[in-house]
Design a protein around this nucleic acid. Sequence first.
DNA 1: ACCCAGGCGGGCG
DNA 2: CGCCCGCATGGG
Length: 298
Amino acid sequence: MGYYELFAQKIPVKDFSLRHTVESAQPLAFYSKYDALSNTLTYPTFTQIINVAFKGDEKKGELVGVGRHGGIDSELRRRFRLGDKMSYIYKKINTDRFIGAAIKRFYGMRLTLNDPWEATLCFVVSQNNNVKRIRSIVLKLIDRFGQPIKDDNDKIVAKAFPTSQDIASASIEELKECGAGFRAEYIKEAAEFFASNLGNVNGDYYELKEALMSVKGIGDKVADCIALMGFGKLEAFPIDTWAKRVLEHAYFNGRSKSIEALHDFTLERWGKYAGYAQQYLFWYGRQEKDWYNEKLGK
DNA sequence: ACCCAGGCGGGCG
DNA sequence: CGCCCGCATGGG
């Protein structure tokens, strides 16, 4: 039988851009397949391949998700944070012309909420790395360690996203063969952390961040990325070199500030929506290099 | 050839 | 004790 049933879900959405969400260096940018022309997306979860299509514009549209198993509706609502009321969040974070320009430029961009372990693997791989190579490494890890996904004829058509157990049972050598380099041992440590009951971390943002940073290979920035995009702690403001530069040039006249001082600043200014402010400022700084260079006076 | 990307840990002040 | 700097890796 070549016939098999598909589960489909249609969800009306407001203030939503699939493109900006998927392209903005969040976990989906590291392993999904996105086509800007048709505005369609394909990515593996732990159990199935999800196909997503968006129709409409950034103000109002419809998201269609298709997969072979159920749970599509909750997967999409969680992954793309469809419960977030963007008009309210924009009001909260739009404190100045810098964020204002970023919101205008990337209107509808959402934070994503990914599985905690999945976010951890992606961001541990991301350290000291660029998107292209992060993608190459994560895709190899999926292909090598993800569970096979089969069609009705028992033919393997794809691989699932590897679980923490899948990766914890890999050797450092095998992880290095995927291009992970010196990150291989960090990946292994993180996988063991999540595969054991230690991975059942909870509590508030600060307790969570401390627990994450107890893992060798997870520092301040990666912990904030995981807190934000793996656990939905919206007050987390990951500070990489771009976020640091943008903050210093937009709010401190280009003066160098410590990471700690910048964390204090973002929490004071944007409070529990700091993570959204970060996503817009960070992506604006990276994409709009002309703006950034002008600000630098170069 | 050289620059870039977070985190770790050794060593210096 | 806290900060800085060299190191790990590979692509542009």
